[in-house]
Design a protein around this nucleic acid. Structure first.
Lengths: 187, 187
DNA sequence: ACCACTTGAATCAATATCGATTCATTTAAA
DNA sequence: TTTAAATGAATCGATATTGATTCAAGTGGT
């Protein structure tokens, strides 16, 4: 290999994932142009759109599962683990966005991966509830959904310039844990 | 008119909005079938996909702006207003979902509508901060984004059966205001 | 039963998109 | 500078989708 192969670049995958989320109805030519590459180069990376989705889904879920399991690997749930998770998901924001938007697949492999990280998060929050960290009047699945919503929402908001990137993970953790009301007992 | 015209039904628009959000790449035939109607009937309602998007966007934004401005019409921001807003957005969940997913338009009319309700919400939260309701270490736009994220996230979660419909608006308001941590001072 | 109207199924030409290939140009390493 | 590899532009047949129309069947009010 005497030249950099664009399609093996990490940022290639990332911007591709982002483009597919932002323009889900773009044709392959538009998709290629959106990431600064010709249709032929995109074709050399993946011949069909299905291949593209499959490849990005596999990669995204691999990254996400690693990220989640690494971040939450502590024996016991903690605020620190949650902060780590926010930080790490933000550094893979494109794949986080992609997976959330494309997980509605009939592919049993993908469904299994979806199941896996959902279960991991549910279990984290459930154990956190049992440890007295999180309130118990919200179910663990609801905590997972809330957490993911806030992550996705703020990644999106950052992309539209509505919130600053700096301090974003702190903002996420604060919003999730403390909420937005002032100076009253939180429950 | 001697027969009910399906395409003038409210639920027609709602399920169409939902189908377009859930299957953004479906062709017109698939879209029609997804809402239990033939391609021809969908065609009689709108001849092209662009017409479809335009029509749904106009209707969605009309509904949303009415909903938001009605809910927040109090002189002063209040928790009650927020609760009303959650309730009303949930009763129009399909159009809320649709507008959020399709607002990335070059159409200046749509951008103006987007601007309008964004401004309304930003202003509500800013006045709420000035009234001592919301914490001031989170910007008003961030409060808007957080609020919308939670609404969208829980609508979606409800559709996947991860949270129950009953008590959803209360859950949303609680999560937004109090957060998920237990029994500590919230700031 | 009649009528006015709506719906669904089928068809069809016009486009759009896809999947694949070729070839000239660019690029980076030796 | 030479050279092997990567890229972009263009082309092209095969499908897929769209936009439009026709007609038979269904529907509800009278």
């Amino acid at each position: 290999m005497t030249q950099t192969n664009f399609s093996e670049d990490q940022s290639f995958l990332a911007s591709l994932a982002l483009a597919m989320v932002e323009k889900p109805r773009a044709n392959l030519n538009e998709l290629a142009n959106a990431i600064g590459v010709s249709k032929a180069t995109l074709y050399r990376f993946c011949r069909t759109r299905n291949e593209l989705i499959e490849r990005l889904t596999n990669y995204s879920s691999k990254v996400l599962i690693e990220t989640i399991e690494d971040s939450l690997s502590d024996a016991d749930p903690s605020i620190e683990a949650l902060k780590r998770l926010a930080d790490n998901l933000l550094t893979h924001s494109e794949f986080t966005l992609f997976f959330i938007h494309y997980w509605q697949s009939e592919n049993p492999v993908i469904q299994a991966l979806d199941q896996r990280w959902t279960t991991t998060l549910d279990s984290f929050f459930l154990r956190g509830q049992q440890a007295g960290l999180f309130r118990i009047d919200i179910t663990a699945p609801a905590l997972t959904e809330l957490w993911i919503s806030i992550i996705i929402g703020f990644i999106d908001a950052e992309g539209r310039g509505r919130v600053a990137r700096a301090g974003l993970s702190t903002l996420i953790v604060t919003a999730f844990l403390q909420g937005t009301a002032v100076g009253v007992l939180s429950n």
